[in-house]
């Protein structure tokens, strides 16, 4: 992002929205970490801190009615697609006002109203679903495209291969966006993948593949826009590999927990220097595209939004326990009744 004059810069409104959504993800996750540490958010939780630019660059490059599938590290994806913070934070806390009524949690934060078709606790599990949404768009002639997010770990699952091949052989409008943060939990990419450059794998599926800087929101935005246009023209899927880094551990396991010394201090320090929010702010200020005061205003607003989301979530009620036993089928009369035995 060193030379903004060299790339096609989107209009100011888009730039402001990029900053707002990246900040939303950052502030949301910072507060989620805080509440998780205080025991208010139960269960496993994986933050998007450090990876904001990829999610936001990709989602802002498509329309609100386009589809998206996520991963286990997916707080950022619905936020990037435009979901408000309140119902997401409530979901993390398992509250009835959560986006999934407390039934999904951190790894399943779907909001179908903005085309978010779900997130998956099983790596690569959402990839075939993304292909299916694209097939549906193609059959219906709707002109929609699908962003399929996945990590570097997913590329060694069979679902990755089957999904890319299906999408390519049927010319489906999918943009496969690999968030390559270098590690599958603790296993480095080059120990897991015989072809460690994910973009190179595109050749196996006769689709374009590009590796880019995932900390550069404008690079991601530009590349996904191009892929989306190609997809809408009926020319099929693309594979974009965004190089990024998670600034925290794989998951939140208590403040002092470490997964071990699998990442060197030097490496971590180098990546922390490449904070996508700082890079963006610096670049747009240096290019004179947006006055600092406008960015500061956004920061104030987003801080307040994130604080309000925590307040909303904390004040919300837990769902009544009987909610656990409904909602499996649309027609509840057909629900298996094995829990309804009366032993009295």
């Amino acid at each position: 992002m060193d030379d903004l004059q060299a790339v096609a810069v989107p209009e100011t409104g888009v730039l402001l929205e990029m900053y707002r959504r990246m900040l939303r993800i950052r502030r949301f996750d910072e507060r989620a970490v805080d509440r998780h540490g205080k025991g208010e958010i139960p269960g496993p939780m994986h933050t998007s801190i450090g990876q904001e630019a990829t999610a936001v660059g990709a989602c802002l490059a498509v329309n609100e009615d386009d589809y998206m599938t996520g991963t286990h590290r997916s707080h950022g994806h619905p936020i990037a697609k435009g979901v408000g913070l309140d119902a997401l934070m409530a979901e993390l806390m398992g509250k009835g006002s959560g986006v999934c009524g407390g039934k999904g949690g951190s790894m399943h934060l779907a909001d179908f109203s903005v085309g978010s078709l779900g997130e998956s606790g099983i790596v690569a599990s959402a990839m075939p679903v993304a292909v299916g949404a694209a097939l549906s768009a193609q059959i219906r002639g709707s002109g929609q495209v699908v962003i399929c997010f996945f990590g570097d770990g997913a590329v060694n699952e069979g679902a990755f291969h089957e999904s890319l091949n299906l999408a390519a052989v049927w010319h489906l409008p999918v943009i496969f966006v690999c968030e390559n943060n270098g590690y599958g939990i603790t296993t480095p990419v080059d120990a897991a993948s015989a072809v460690p450059v994910v973009a190179d794998r595109a050749a196996a599926y006769a689709m374009p593949g590009v590796r880019l800087d995932g900390q550069d929101v404008l690079a991601v935005y530009g590349s996904v826009r191009e892929a989306a246009e190609r997809a809408r023209r009926g020319e099929g899927p693309s594979l974009i590999e965004a190089m990024t880094y998670r600034f925290r551990e794989h998951s939140e396991m208590g403040s002092n927990f470490s997964f071990g010394p699998y990442r060197s201090d030097e490496e971590i320090a180098e990546w922390l220097e490449r904070d996508p929010l700082v890079l963006f702010r610096t670049a747009v200020l240096e290019a004179g595209l947006i006055p600092a005061v406008e960015l500061d205003e956004i920061e104030t607003e987003v801080d307040a939004e994130a604080a309000a989301a925590v307040k909303f979530a904390r004040r919300s009620d837990f769902p009544p326990p009987e909610q656990a036993y409904v909602g499996l089928y649309l027609d509840e009369r057909r629900e298996p009744a094995s829990l309804e035995l009366d032993y009295a």
Binding site: M127, P128, V129, V131, G132, I139, N165
Partner: peptide, 21 residues
């Protein structure tokens, strides 16, 4: 007709079903 990709095309059918088909 599908390729021999039972995981992939079953998942694709699920995605198509989620989006109106």
């Amino acid at each position: 007709d599908t390729p021999l990709s039972e995981l992939g095309f079953t998942g694709a059918a699920i995605g198509a079903a989620m989006t109106g088909l």
